[in-house]
Amino acid sequence: MKRKRVLSIIQKIYVVLLFVFFYAPVAVMIVFSFNTSKANVVWQGFTTRWYGELMSDSELWEIFGMTILIAILTTIFATLIGTMGAIGFKKEKRKWAKLITNSVYFPIIIPEIVLAVSLFMIFNTTGVALGVLAIVIGNTTICLPYVYITVKSRLVGMDPSIEEASLDLGADRIYTLFHITIPQILPGILSGAFMAFSLALDELIITSFLADAGTTTLPMKVYSSMKKGISPEINALTTIIFSVSAAGVIIYLVADVIKSHKKLFRRHHS
């Protein structure tokens, strides 16, 4: 028994150390957003100047807006097409369908750069202009499999008799789809959409291959300024984004705790 407790303590220390490894760079990023040195490699002194400059940096905000726009468009396309496809191919057994449903996995199986150069070449040879549209197409292609997989796994876990009951009771396919199927698989659709959004937000390889001279996204900006050292301003912007997502997670967790407490309370009183 004593050995077991020692083992469990070692395990906990290990997990804590691993999380230190994960959060140390985040902490450094946050701390160095308050650094006075513009080169931002060595700590010089404390300032909030970069947050002020960030607010008035119209170029950076424009880039940020472009990144969000691309991420939103990508999420809409990927979620719509991926969800429809997962539902449509659920019961499909014809041979050609196998080719399509297997190819859907392609973008996550092959390295991103291979997909990036393939799309780059096909847009170039067919005369599709590079730019926002091409980037959205590329991002959607890489996000689609994630939506397809999450929705599909939700569909597989669904009780088929509910759908059948709806059909037997006279509802048509479309009514059943919107009133029975979609509400049931909604968590899958949402988590797929969330995954697509966060992937598109941070996507660099495909985006940089498919961007024209006038289009820059945040990851592209970060990557291009890397050689000179990433400015504290970008650290500041990322710190803000990080805080917002961390706040979102905390709110979600707190809401969850309150909900489960309420449930307990109700059970207690009934």
């Binding site: 760079p25 490699v41 060595v42 966060s198 941070d202 970060v222």
Partner: peptide, 29 residues
Amino acid sequence: LLTILLMLPLWVSGLVVLYSFVIILNNSG
């Protein structure tokens, strides 16, 4: 909670967080 905490640093921007390693690891880091 642990899986969310695990993914959180990468949601934000893998690149910027990765750059922190330059700050941590360089010769005067």
